[in-house]
Structures are given as structure tokens and as C-alpha cells.
């Protein structure tokens, strides 16, 4: 009896996902179709990219509220570089960027902002919540400055391929998501860096006494979260063929929701990338199903909120002794 209960609790998110799919299939004949399947996958791909970074951060017992803004800024930087290049009148220099160069620029910006988060947290002991909250408004302001408050559009077909193209019968965003998830799983399960992330989040003091460079691990984790947010930003910009100054608003909340529904503990040290993918899938499937069932968007938000609560309550039952 206990065995059954434990198994049920352990696979709660998969069970919830399957149950959700069955219910939606019964309720709507448009749900279980290939088009809808790819739609859902494409829609969750950006959230999954961000959430992979968020999972790493939360595993170290941190939080990153700035991912939505970093996403917007990196997307805008990429779009701006691609469309207008960079002019440095002081040096009499004008640089044009290839698609590859522009993407690299966007990723670099995301990585730098993430590193800045990590530096604030480790060097000046700013709590992660506050440091990344500050970055949330800093990066948003930077986006507004960079774009002048207007979207940057018309980025060309090569760039659009990233967000809208298909390769070997699978949409590009899904490829990107799959590769990143695979890499992240390898890092967390097989690499020393991943092990140290769990150790730092599980017991920072024991990790320090074991000779682990806590600060280095944390800075890297926030830098990666920034880079992954930039990946999301580039995908979004490409899909819309436009960098919107207010892109990515409240994405950090969807991302935290995916991580939490996926069973990663906010007190650090416990959780997995696969769990987060499941969490993002649950949110994606739910969104799609509710749209197909013509549920009002207002109700959708309420339902999503309760799903988060239920997921966390189940997780509590599973791990009763954590605080």
C-alpha cells in the first residue's frame, strides 16, 4: 500500500500529464492531432530554455527574476545588430553583423548580465531575490533605451528560420530545446559542475568544507541562466520577426512555475531538468487545452494558479521533512 503510494507520488508529474492529456482528448477532438502536438512543443520551447537555467539556479537555492528582461534585451540586441549594425563615431568604425555574429552578440549580452547577477550575489552578498529583481528593471530599461521603445522588425528570412523553420520534420525551436535539455541533463547528472550545483544547494556549509568553490559555482549558474534566457530571446525575436521592447514580461513567473511543478525544491539541492521539462509540458498542455475548450483567458490564469498549488502540495506530501 505504502509502496503504491510512494510510486504514485514519485511519478506524480508524469501521471498528471498523462491524465491531463486523456481528459483533453475526450473533451476535444482537436487536441490529439499532430499539428496541435507541434504547436504545444513550439510554444513551450522558449519556456523550457529559460527554465533549464532557472532549474540550475533554484538547485543552488537561488532564484532568478531577471530572465524575462534579459530575454527581451538579448533579443533586441540581436535584432539591432542584425538590422542596423554598430556605429562608433569616435573611432570612425561601422560594424555590420552576420546572423551568426548578431546571435553571438545577443548570447554574450545575456551571459554578461547573468554574470553580473552572480557577482552581486557572491561578492556583495545581495540576496538572489533582490539582485535579480534589480536586474529585472535594469535590463528592461536597457531594452527600452536600445530600441527607443519601438519594435525592431524586418530581420530577414535566414534569421526567421531559427524560430519558424523545420528541420528533418521537426520545428527548429524544438530542436534547440531538445539539444539544450540533453546538454543540461548531461551536465547535471554526469559532470562535476552539476554535482557541485546539487552539493551547494543541498548543504552549502558541507560543500564549502569539502573544498568546493561556492562563489565560482554560483556565478556560473547565474551566467548560464542569462545565456539561456538570451537563447529564448533570440528564438522569440526570430519567431515574431520582431524584437518587442516589452517582450518576455512575466516569463520568469512561468519559468518558476515550470520548475516548481516539476518537483524541484525551492530550498535547493533537490530536483531535475527532466522534472522541469514535465512541468513546462503540463503548463503547455493545459494552456492549449483550455484554449481549445474556449475557456476564458481570465479563468485560464486562475486554473494555472491552482495547478501550481496542487503540484506543490503533492510535493510536500512526497517530502514531508523539508522546510
Amino acid at each position: 500500500m505504502n509502496q503504491i503510494k510512494n510510486t504514485l507520488l514519485r511519478f506524480q508529474s508524469i501521471i498528471a500529464l498523462v491524465a491531463l492529456c486523456i481528459v483533453l482528448t475526450l473533451l476535444s477532438d482537436k487536441f490529439l492531432t499532430p499539428e496541435n502536438g507541434w504547436n504545444i512543443m513550439r510554444q513551450i520551447s522558449i519556456n523550457v530554455c529559460i527554465s533549464v537555467g532557472m532549474t540550475l539556479v533554484i538547485l543552488t537555492r537561488g532564484i532568478d527574476l531577471s530572465v524575462g528582461s534579459i530575454l527581451a534585451f538579448s533579443g533586441a540586441v540581436t535584432a539591432g545588430l542584425l538590422k542596423y549594425g554598430v556605429e562608433l563615431p569616435a573611432f570612425n568604425v561601422f560594424m555590420e553583423f552576420t546572423v551568426f555574429g548578431a546571435i553571438l552578440g545577443g548570447l554574450l549580452v545575456g551571459g554578461c548580465l547573468g554574470t553580473f547577477n552572480g557577482w552581486m550575489i557572491t561578492r556583495f552578498k545581495v540576496p538572489p531575490f533582490v539582485a535579480t529583481l534589480a536586474m529585472l528593471t535594469i535590463a528592461r530599461g536597457a531594452t527600452m533605451l536600445w530600441t527607443g521603445g519601438f519594435p525592431i522588425t524586418g530581420l530577414g528570412t535566414t534569421f526567421a528560420f531559427i524560430g519558424t523553420g523545420w528541420f528533418l520534420g521537426i520545428p527548429m525551436p524544438v530542436w534547440i530545446m531538445a539539444v539544450l535539455v540533453g546538454l543540461a541533463m548531461f551536465v547535471t547528472h554526469k559532470m562535476v559542475f552539476g554535482r557541485y550545483i546539487y552539493a551547494v544547494g543541498g548543504n552549502e556549509s558541507a560543500a564549502r568544507l569539502s573544498g568546493i568553490d561556492i562563489k565560482k559555482i554560483k556565478v556560473w549558474v547565474y551566467a548560464l541562466a542569462g545565456i539561456l534566457a538570451a537563447v529564448g530571446g533570440i528564438m522569440l525575436t526570430s519567431r515574431l520577426d520582431s524584437a518587442q521592447p516589452n517582450a518576455g514580461m512575466s516569463y520568469e513567473l512561468d519559468s518558476i512555475a515550470a520548475v516548481v511543478i516539476g518537483g524541484t525544491s525551492l530550498s535547493g539541492g533537490r530536483g531535475s531538468i527532466m522534472g522541469t521539462v514535465q512541468g513546462a509540458l503540463i503548463i503547455g498542455v493545459l494552456n492549449s487545452g483550455l484554449v481549445l475548450l474556449n475557456v476564458s483567458p481570465f479563468w485560464q490564469q486562475i486554473i494555472k494558479g491552482f495547478v501550481i498549488l496542487i503540484a506543490v502540495i503533492l510535493d510536500r506530501l512526497n517530502h514531508p521533512n523539508e522546510d
Binding site: 554535482r195 546539487y198 552539493a199 543541498g202 558541507a206 560543500a207 568544507l209 569539502s210 539541492g269 533537490r270
Partner: peptide
Amino acid sequence: DGLVLQMEIAKNVSL
């Protein structure tokens, strides 16, 4: 200060 309690024995030993 000694253990990461929710980690396996093997992972604690190698830490």
C-alpha cells in the same frame, strides 16, 4: 557541515 543529507552515500564520499 559534514554531509549533503539528501545525496547518496556514494556522492557524499566522492565530494
